[in-house]
Amino acid sequence: MEAPNITRLIYRNIKVNTDPGTLTILIGLPAMYLVFFGFGFASLESRSGGGASYLSFLTPGLMAFQAVMAGTVGGGMLWADRRWGMLAQLLVGPFTRLQYLLGIMLTSVTFGLAGSLVMLGIAYVLLGALPVTLIGLGAMLAIITVGSLFFGSLMLLIAAKVKSNTTYNSIQILVLFLVNFASTVFYPYSSGLPAAIRVLFAVNPLTYIADVARAAYFGTYTVTVGYEALVLCVEAVIVLFLAVRAYLRSDVSMD
C-alpha cells in the first residue's frame, strides 16, 4: 500500500536531517546544557541550601527548549531546500505547496517531541527518579508540540524572506540567544531582574512553554500557567498564518 504524501515527505525530511552533525546540534547541545549546567550550578545551590535540585528544575526547561531547536530544523529545511534546489524539485513532483509546508511543520514537531523525550531520558539517568506523572508528561508534550509549531513557523517566516546564508545564520543565532536566555528555561522569573529583561521574559513564548512544561513536570498548575498556554496557542496560530502566507508568496529557488 502506498504511503500518503505527507508521510513520505516527513520520512524524507527526517532521513536527510538525521546526519551526525545535525543530531549533535539538536540533541547534543541541550544534553550538554543539562549535564554541565545541572551539575555546575548544583554547587551554588548547595551553598544556598535551596529546595528542588537545579538539575530537576532545568529538565522541563530544556524539554521546552526543544521547541526552539525544532523551529531551527523547520526553518533550516526550507532554507536548505530552496538553496539546494529541492524545493523546486519537490514542487514539480506529486505534492502541493501546502503538503510540503505541512511536511516540514510535522517534521519539526517530531524533532521537538523526540528531543524532549531524550532530555527526559538523560534526566532520568542523572536523577534516578522523576516527579512527572503520565498525565503531566502528556501535558508537557502537548505544550512542546504547540511551541514547536510556533518556532517552526517563526523560522519558516525568516527562511521564506531571507536569501543569504550568512544573514539567515546570523538571524537564527540572534533569535536562539535571545529566546533562550531571556526565558525561564535556565532560571526562574524574578522581580529583581532589570525592567527591560523582565519585559523580554514576559513576551518570550519560550517562557510560556517552559512555565507550562515545568508546571506539568512538577504537577504545580496555576491559573497564570493556564493563561500562558492560551496565549501561546493564539501566538502559534498567528505566526503560522504569517509563515504560510510568506511561504506561498516566496520564490521556490534562489535564482
Binding site: 515527505l9 536527510v16 524539485q89 505534492f95
Partner: peptide, 27 residues
C-alpha cells in the same frame, strides 16, 4: 511528469541515498 531542472537539486545524503529518498517520495 518527470523534471530535470537547470539548477542542481540534492538532498544531504549519499548518491544512492538520493535515489532511495527520491523513490520514496514518488511512492
Amino acid at each position: 511528469i518527470g523534471v530535470v531542472q537547470q539548477g542542481e537539486s540534492f538532498d544531504f545524503t549519499t548518491v544512492e541515498g538520493n535515489f532511495d529518498v527520491y523513490g520514496v517520495l514518488w511512492g
